[in-house]
Design a binder for these strands. Structure first.
Length: 482
RNA sequence: CGGGGCGUAGCGCAGCCCGGCUAGCGCGUCUGCUUUGGGAGCAGAAGGUCGGAGGUUCAAAUCCUCUCGCCCCGACCA
């Protein structure tokens, strides 16, 4: 199945969907707003999972599994939480052929049911902290779905922790934000801006929400992960209390944090080009594809090529490679296929290479045929493994550099509201903000842009709000977002 | 829920405005031969309730009415 994909510049939304479907990452399900994650997409997700999971465990978290169904009354216990989630709940009213006494909500997120369980498990300060994560699917009745970015059902991890003090909870919230940032930058090669959400954008029920914000290939923003300081809001709603060392009952301080399959969408949009996906080597399901070029009527040549391939494979320990020996597909066809799928590195090897004891190494992130600076280089056949490993590191680093350069080139620091309105249409606008919700709302009305975050990293000094001119202490990132 | 677009072969589409022979085309699939260093060529073959229901007509993919669904742009959101 081969159809040319539409260039990004022509129709970004169409490009995005075409790439996902043609690269076999995902497909539409028969139910509106739901998607099927196909094996190739899921393999990428599994690598994301593995990287995050190992970081969670290294910081003392354990995995568990909580139920899919939540009693409706649970959702209603925290005022802001209900208000935020009620409109997008899927509710089960019947079971076993009978109407249920109390409707069950298909979890949109699990603070409530986990909070309920924590209230039973936590008695003493000695029980704290509780550090639990779960990998799960959740459902939100979204009005306008989009593959990976916003589907009605999506996959994610949600961490839920309980602490004795607010200081500890804050520390946890920021520790996770660091983990997310580290993951995004060093594994996904996506430069993200860690920061705080504004009041209007924060998680329903949180005291403070933190986020990592990324820029996509069309210069729009994407929230790629969130970490919430829930204060004592859920502890109070669910009665999560402990007896402290002075024999006093105290409410716990809780946090929650999540990264979803949206991260896959971020990877696609941060790195993809008109040829298809470009996957960062550290997460790519296949890091290296070997394409043997074997003339049909020369069995001895074919055998020699395949022997050389087998020999190379023996040296590739630690590399996720695949040999595409579909000899009935032409080399060009196979090249294009793997480029569409974003495999970071390709080895081309044919009889002509064998004569010179070399192979062709072609990198996905730099297309172009020839020359030492192009995407293709010749590499001595004895040294393939070393070159491959080095090249994978180089690609990983270059992808991050390229994405960072792109983001920086499209980040502006306007000094007047007029200039602000213009630049926010074509990238990130960094500007002073007084903190007033009215100014935030005005920006949204005038430009459709929202505050993506108030970055953790702030410049020295103070300035004047880009909207109202009042004294401002913080810089905010404004952008149009998904 | 508002605005736009679309449902015809596995996929992508033309045909519809202006009704008329057996509903076409490209890709893919199957068979055979020739091919393989950037999406191979030739020959042959299979594959269709034209989204659904009703209506108009001698005759409907095409016109009318109703209906279902999907995609895109907004409002809402990880």
């Amino acid at each position: 199945m081969f159809n040319k994909i539409v260039p990004r510049s022509e129709d970004y939304a169409k490009w995005y969907t075409q790439v996902i479907r043609q690269a076999e990452m995902a497909d539409y399900a028969p139910v509106r707003g739901c998607m099927v994650v196909r094996p190739y997409g899921f393999a990428l997700w599994e690598n994301v999972k593995e990287q995050l999971d190992s970081r969670f465990k290294a910081t003392g978290h354990q995995n568990a599994a909580f139920p899919l169904f939540i009693p409706m009354s649970f959702i209603e216990k925290e005022a802001e939480h209900v208000e935020g989630f009620k409109p997008e709940l899927a509710v089960v009213t019947h079971g076993g052929g009978k109407k249920l006494d109390e409707p069950l909500v298909v979890r949109p997120t699990s603070e409530t049911i986990i909070g309920y369980m924590y209230s039973q498990w936590i008695q003493s300060y000695r029980d704290l902290p509780v550090l639990i994560n779960q990998w799960a699917n959740v459902v939100r009745w979204e009005l306008r779905p989009r593959l990976f970015l916003r589907t009605m059902e999506f996959f994610w991890q949600e961490g839920h922790t309980a602490h004795a003090t607010h200081a500890e909870a804050k520390e946890e919230t920021l520790r996770i934000l660091d983990i997310y940032t580290d993951f995004a930058v060093n594994e996904a090669a996506i430069p993200v801006i860690p920061g705080r959400k504004s009041e209007s954008e924060k998680f329903p029920g949180a005291l403070t929400s933190y986020t990592i914000e990324a820029m996509m290939g069309d210069k729009r923003g994407l929230q790629a992960g969130t970490s919430h300081d829930l204060g004592q809001n859920f502890a109070k709603a669910f009665d999560i209390q402990y007896l402290d060392a002075n024999q006093k009952q105290q409410h716990c301080w809780t946090t929650s944090w999540g990264v979803s399959t949206r991260m896959i969408g971020a990877i696609i949009m941060a790195h993809g080009d008109d040829q298809g996906l470009v996957l960062p080597p550290r997460l790519a399901p296949t890091q290296l594809v070997i394409v043997p070029i074997t003339p049909k009527n020369r069995e001895d040549d074919k055998q020699a090529v395949m022997d050389a391939v087998a020999k190379i494979c023996e040296t590739l320990d630690g590399v996720r490679y695949h040999v595409d020996d579909r000899h009935d597909y032409s080399p060009g066809w196979r090249f294009n296929e793997w480029e569409l799928k974003g495999v970071p590195l390709r080895i081309e090897i044919g009889p002509r290479d064998l004569q010179k004891d070399q192979v062709v190494l072609a990198r996905r992130d730099i297309l172009g045929r020839d020359g030492p600076r192009g995407g293709k280089t010749f590499v001595a056949i004895d040294n393939v493994a070393n070159e491959v490993k080095q090249m994978l590191d180089t690609i990983q680093a270059d992808m991050l550099k390229r994405a960072t350069a792109f983001r920086d080139a499209n980040t502006f620091e306007p000094t007047s509201y007029e200039a602000f309105q213009e630049v926010v249409e074509e990238g990130f606008a960094r500007a002073w903000w007084c903190g007033d919700e009215a100014c935030e709302a005005k920006v949204k009305e005038d430009t459709q842009a929202t505050i993506r975050c108030v970055p953790i990293a702030q410049p020295d000094g103070a300035g004047h709000c880009i909207v109202c001119g009042a004294a401002a202490e913080e810089i905010a990132i404004f952008a149009r977002a998904y």
